Structures are given as C-alpha cells and as structure tokens.
Computed example of a mutant assay.
Amino acid sequence: MQLIDGKATATAIKGEIAEEVKEIVANGGKRPHLAAVLVGNDGGSQTYVKHKVKACEQCGFESTLLTFEDDITEEQLMSEIDRLNNDPQIDGFIVQLPLPKHIDENKVTMAIDPVKDVDGFHPQNLGKMMLGLPAFLPATPYGIVQLLDRYGIETSGKKCVVVGRSNIVGTPMSLLMSRNAKVGNATVTLVHSRTANMEEECKAADILIVAVGRPGTIKADMVKEGAVVIDVGTTRVADASKKSGFALKGDVLFEEVAPKCSYITPVPGGVGPMTVVTLMKNTLLAAKK
C-alpha cells in the first residue's frame, strides 16, 4: 500500500506556480490576483478561505478577502459580484459556499463571469469541460486528476466507481474520468443513495473515488484487493483529544481499508490540499487569459 501524499504534491505544485509567477513579473507582466468572498461566520468556511489566502502568498499572488455578515441581502451580494466581474485588477474570484439560506447559491454561481470563475462551477465552464474544450475545471476533481497523474496511476481501461453525485465533486469527476485524456479513458459508474447494489459496485472498482460526506461509508468488505481509493470526505467530528475539539474524518474507514489498497489518500492531507492548489492553477490560467 502506498499513501498518496496530497500535501507534498500540493507543495511541489505551488513551487512550480511561484517560479512561473516570478518569470511573469520579471518580464513586466501583472501578478495574478485572486479575490475571495466570505459571508457569515462558519468555522469551516473561514478555515478554507484562510488556507486559500495563505496559498496565494506562497504562489506569489495578490489576494483580496471580502468578508460580510450573514445578514447581507442577496441584492447586496450580487452587487459585490458585479463589481468584481468588472474590476480589471481581479483575475479570478470565488464565493465561498455554503451561503446563508436566504441567498440563492445557484443565482450567485450564475452571476460570476465565466472568465473569472476559478472555482469552475459556472454552467459555461462545466459545459466546456463536458465537450473537452479549454475551461476552468472544478477544483476538487481537478486536484484528484493531478494526484492520479503525478503518482503515475493508470486509468485507461480501468473500472472507476465514483460514490456521490454532487455538482461540485461526483458528477464532474465521473465526466473527467471517462474523457479521452491522459487521466481518463476509464469505464465509469456513478453510484449514489438510490443505487440498489452500491456495495457490489464499489467492490468491482479498480479506482474508487468517494465523495459523500458521511464518515465510515466505505468499509473493507466494499473494496477489492489492489484498488486505488481516493477519499474526498472531510467531515468534522467531535474529538476531545484535539486542541481544536474536533477531528477531520473521511468517508473511508482508513485503518481497515488501507491494507487492501495499492494506493490510498489519507484524511487530512490527501485531496484537501489539492483542492486549494488547483484553485491557484486556475487563477494563474485566468491571469494569463
């Protein structure tokens, strides 16, 4: 069993980005600029945005963090998005999810200019991805593709099972794994809460990608010997032994599943750091137009 080290891979990629930014600036180019919009006081969202701001520093980017109380109106937020769309200094921006219940997340996503949509959530970017056209890829699936590529894991002709059909991870992940590309050409099955034989489908997978947000969903008897397991889950679970009072748990029971795997991602330190670094890759792409 080999551990897929997302933290080390992300550090290497940030170093590559930083070198490219140095070259751009040395040649008189503009330093990439990422803005992040944070609404409310959700602890998880604050942590994620903090990581993104730090990553900007490491990559040599400029960053702007815009914070608003959770009583901001939808109209006010849409006005801020319009301002960012039209600010020539901002190359790309994200609106951190989730948003307060009185704000329509789909409406917000649709309002972001696709050329600045570095999260890759806008329908225009998702549509281009489906057609195999150049586009900003959703950060988490893009991060997984990078991990599979950098670890030299063969995907062509393999049976890939994706657990979870969210628009952020599962659905775009299934499309990326089936496309005609270096990381792709897999035969993909997308399973979800209504799948009748989920256990059997998972056990048939050469590559199992799990993104449901329920700790312990995948047990050892659901994984075949030698499988590659990518655990996207990052759920906060109360843990009095931790200084923070919580621990991050994946969707896979790591201790019992890991011995059966050829490769597996840990939680934390697997997919999470890659989600942040691929956001940086998208921002660099946006800055290069």
Rank of each mutant, 00 (worst) to 15 (best):
E255S: 11
A258H: 07
K52T: 07
E62Q: 13
T9H: 01
T9G: 02
G164K: 00
L284K: 07
K30D: 13
I72E: 11
M280W: 01
A258N: 05
E255T: 10
L38W: 02
K224T: 09
E200F: 06
H33D: 10
I81S: 13
K7W: 01
T189F: 05
A181G: 12
K243T: 07
P134H: 10
I72M: 12
L97K: 02
G269Y: 02
E201Y: 10
S156E: 15
G233K: 00
V145G: 03
S241R: 06
F61T: 07
M177N: 12
A12P: 02
R236L: 10
P98Y: 02
L208P: 08
K7Q: 13
Q46K: 14
T195C: 10
G245T: 05
A196F: 13
P88I: 06
I209Y: 01
G92T: 10
S193F: 13
A55Q: 04
T155K: 02
A247V: 05
G60V: 10
L66N: 13
T275W: 01
V277L: 11
G226H: 04
I168T: 09
I264R: 01
R179I: 11
K288N: 10
D239N: 11
V237L: 09
R214P: 03
A240P: 08
A227T: 09
N125T: 08
T195M: 08
H33A: 08
V108H: 03
L34P: 03
G250Y: 00
N185Y: 07
E200I: 08
A111V: 07
V271F: 06
A36G: 13
K281W: 02
L175P: 03
V223I: 06
K243H: 05
I230V: 15
V118F: 06
I24T: 14
D87S: 09
K54E: 15
L126F: 12
E74K: 07
L175F: 15
T189Y: 05
K116N: 08
C160Q: 00
S244I: 10
N180W: 04
V237C: 12
P32F: 03
G28Y: 14
V183Y: 13
T67Q: 15
I209M: 05
A36R: 00
I112E: 03
V267Q: 06
D87Y: 04
L253T: 07
Y263M: 06
